[in-house]
């Protein structure tokens, strides 16, 4: 049977305050940033950051309360600006110190923050 690296599901729950420190450590360890996305929860959102090393994925699940501001990781991984702008435009999550902030003009949508409409 061949090796099934994809079956390794490493998803770690962390707090928003730990994020930047963890990401810095991962960068030092030679991880490659792979993706970030958000999903709605009762308390706000979960952000899922994925990092790759040798074809194995490491995921950080960050709990974010509604309205809480998150430290941008663009200082460590510049390409993350795409995902942070996306999450800002679709979910209304605010990121601090984003290196390339489109100020909500990344995706022009018919309604603002369609994934998380303001009541």
């Amino acid at each position: 049977m061949s090796e099934k690296k994809y079956a390794i599901q490493d998803i770690q729950n962390i707090a928003a305050s730990e994020l930047l420190e963890r990401v810095r450590k991962l960068k030092e360890d030679g991880y490659r940033f792979s993706q970030a996305c958000a999903m709605n929860r009762e308390y706000g959102q979960d952000l899922l950051y994925s990092f790759d090393k040798d074809h194995i994925l490491l995921n950080l699940k960050v709990k974010v309360n509604e309205g809480e501001e998150v430290e941008s990781i663009t200082g460590e991984y510049w390409p993350a600006f795409i995902y942070e702008n996306e999450m800002h435009d679709l979910f209304g999550i605010k990121f601090l110190h984003n290196a390339l902030d489109y100020n909500g003009n990344f995706f022009v949508t018919a309604e603002p923050t369609p994934w998380n409409p303001k009541k």
């Binding site: 090796e3 690296k5 079956a7 940033f33 074809h55 390409p79």
Partner: peptide, 29 residues
């Protein structure tokens, strides 16, 4: 590496990154 490129773009800059190694499909076989 810094810009986290993927696919042929990364492979053309000498990075050995090909997700066919991760076990999906019958590539390893």
């Amino acid at each position: 590496i810094d810009l986290c490129t993927v696919g042929p773009m990364a492979r053309a800059s000498g990075i050995n990154q090909d997700l066919r190694f991760n076990g999906h499909g019958k590539y390893l076989e």
